[in-house]
Design a protein around this nucleic acid. Structure first.
Lengths: 243, 243
DNA sequence: TGGGTTGATTGATGAATGTCAAGCGAGCCG
DNA sequence: CGGCTCGCTTGACATTCATCAATCAACCCA
């Protein structure tokens, strides 16, 4: 838990006040943790596993983000004591720390350093969303996929790596249907993208980069060696209308 | 300035510390205040006028938000002392208060109540962006326009109101080209949408609502009588690839 | 008053994307 | 082992959307 910058510099008293009221729970895969519109009583901290945040409207659904440990989620709703705007669901079995929202708000009011840490966390999440909107609005599906693959490649050591999610989740995250994700992979084959199940190999990196045009003002340059920054720093790429 | 909840409850000492270091500036219309990637030295507070926030990539540009008074902008970059992810440009002559970022950060560290106010402001902005992404990813252009018009209608008193921006700005905000905005208005004519220049009249409200399916988890229910909440609470609707 | 610019509109076309349907293959379970 | 489900892929088609070009109206200014 101290791994999160949010709690890293918390003084002993605040840390105890929060951990005492919190509890750790293990959820099986595919568990709905939160529905859109639910009132939010807890701040969630994903310690292990994978959680998907989604939005729905009019029988359409889209994945807004997939979280990896260690990340918090629905922090903004907790700070404002408001209803959730996103649904949350475990993708795999997950260990999740649940901290009562009231405790968070109380510590913030008492402890300026903690409130600043929360504000910094929120700022990081906010900027992740700005990147996501730009990615979504300024790029086509193929361009988003190309940049996504380059980011995965940068985190891996070799020139081959595994897709971290099911393809249909990835498709929704990238803002397309599973059918179009398949076709997008096909479009990228001439750019040195070889897919075999979840395994991806990038030959022709230069060609792929020329197509993708990665941009530090859109891509998350979250250094993988650094502390996990936040909610959206882990994995945040946009999406579009998706069944 | 006290009109902003961010500064409303600030104690006298903090308020003075901040206002002394701040300065007010009047900018003409169409002035670039900030380019994407600029380092951010000030928190901006729009007191009068209109400011557009935009993102660019690969010769494409999109409007992310149009701000009305009183709103802050680039708060997240100030909190993290990071580079701007959005460009900012005045649309009309604007009065803007510029507060040194260092002063903001210093007051946050000293004054828990202020840090909490900042965190609440950031949370509101964050949630505005979540709404925006859902609007963008889950709806078509015509659906976004229909909901946008219904929101303007709700704020106006009569059944007729004025579009608050040029149509090409509105088009980019809604994620379409100006050409497609024209056609979208045409598509909505059978739903009682009559446009004459900037003036819009909605007859057949029930039909338009049936098409738009407004949703409190996407639409900004910012009550127009309430305090202006934040950056994106004023006017935040998504956009898509736009020349 | 008469260009000249700018923004809005309209039409024609093509690219990007969603939808529907069919088929394939891996894994699970009776 | 067989049959089932589920995820992925592929093809055919429809819709949504962008692009290019031309026209029009409003406004500014010389």
């Amino acid at each position: 838990m101290r791994a999160l910058p949010m709690f890293a510099d918390l003084d002993a008293a605040s840390f105890e006040a929060i951990t005492l009221s919190a509890f750790l729970q293990r959820f099986p895969a595919n568990t709905q943790l939160l529905l859109e519109g639910d009132t939010v009583d807890f701040l969630y901290v994903l310690l292990d596993g994978q959680v998907e945040l989604s939005g729905t409207w009019n029988d359409r659904e889209t994945v807004l983000a997939v979280l990896r440990p260690v990340s918090t989620f629905i922090l903004a709703a907790v700070v404002l004591d408001a209803e959730a705007l996103m649904g949350a669901r475990t993708i795999e079995r997950s260990d999740i720390l649940m901290i009562p929202g009231a405790a968070i708000r109380a510590r913030m009011a008492d402890d300026a350093a903690f409130a600043v840490a929360i504000a910094r966390e929120l700022s990081g999440c906010y900027r992740g969303l700005v990147r996501s909107i730009k990615n979504q609005k300024l790029r086509t599906g193929v361009e988003r996929l190309a940049n996504y693959l380059l980011q995965l490649h940068a985190r891996a050591n070799g020139d081959t790596f595994e897709l971290p999610h099911e393809k249909r989740v990835l498709a929704s995250l990238l803002g397309m249907t599973p059918e179009n994700l398949s076709r997008a992979f096909g479009t990228l084959r001439p750019y040195g993208v070889a897919v075999n199940g979840a395994e991806v190999r990038l030959t022709l990196l230069a060609d792929l980069r020329r197509l993708a045009k990665p941009d530090p003002l859109i891509e998350n340059q979250a250094a993988h060696h650094a502390r996990p920054i936040a909610e959206f720093e882990a994995e945040m790429l946009a999406t579009r209308r998706t069944a």
